[in-house]
């Protein structure tokens, strides 16, 4: 596969969220505000890229028995590096991301890509695959967050769009709405892909 194909594949065709049903936990918690979703998405992209790259570099040396532990170690290390970096240089953003650090480590997407791709491909390709998967995930997050923030708070990235006349949909602020929105998104994408196949 060419690099472009790898990227498009992990971004769209094999999208981590709607196709592989991975990374759901964080998709539920973070998506009530666009800003948080963006930070989370970027954090995941970074971690995915570097983790997949590193794991791919070591792939021929990792003993099969303990490969999960090794992957987890590498992933956790990068996440902590991101966290420490943010705490020191971008403290406000760190405060926003703080609670989610643990969620990134156990984000099944990272493990999933590591197992499915990074263990069997070259480092650069793995990094590209990781970035694609991360962006696909971030994309889904932003779409859901757009609706949740708009209907739940009436804002867009913190800027008031809908005025006082709008009765806030509290359910959009609470996590269950993410379930419904995600299901709707999956339904929508399915129909789009079905239509594309028919044409």
């Amino acid at each position: 596969m060419t690099k472009k194909q790898i990227f498009i594949n992990s971004l769209y065709h094999e999208n981590a969220v709607w196709r592989q049903i991975l990374g759901i936990c964080s998709a539920l918690a973070v998506t009530n505000q666009l800003m948080n979703s963006l930070v989370m998405g970027l954090g995941v992209v970074f971690t995915l890229a570097f983790s997949c790259f590193t794991i791919s570099l070591l792939r021929n040396y990792i003993p099969a028995r303990i490969r999960m532990m090794v992957q987890v170690l590498i992933i956790a290390s990068y996440v902590i590096i991101v966290d420490l970096f943010l705490k020191a240089f971008l403290p406000d953003i760190s405060k926003a991301l703080g609670p989610y650090v643990g969620l990134i480590i156990t984000n099944c997407i990272i493990m999933g890509r590591a197992e499915a791709f990074a263990m069997k491909n070259t480092p650069l390709n793995s990094a590209i695959d990781g970035i694609g998967a991360g962006l696909g995930y971030a994309f889904v997050l932003l779409i859901i967050a757009f609706f949740r923030e708009l209907f739940g708070f009436g804002t867009f990235f913190g800027f008031q769009i809908l005025g006082q006349w709008w009765t806030k949909w509290s359910i959009m602020v609470m996590a269950p709405s993410a379930f419904f929105m995600l299901a709707l998104l999956m339904w929508f994408v399915y129909n789009v892909q079905l239509k594309n196949k028919k044409d």
Binding site: Y61, I62, P63, I66, M69, V70, L73, I74, S77, I80, I81, L84
Partner: peptide, 14 residues
């Protein structure tokens, strides 16, 4: 052995 070495390296970096 591998796990220990790798842990030491990464924890060291951290």
């Amino acid at each position: 052995f591998f796990m220990v070495i790798l842990t030491v390296i990464f924890v060291g970096v951290l």
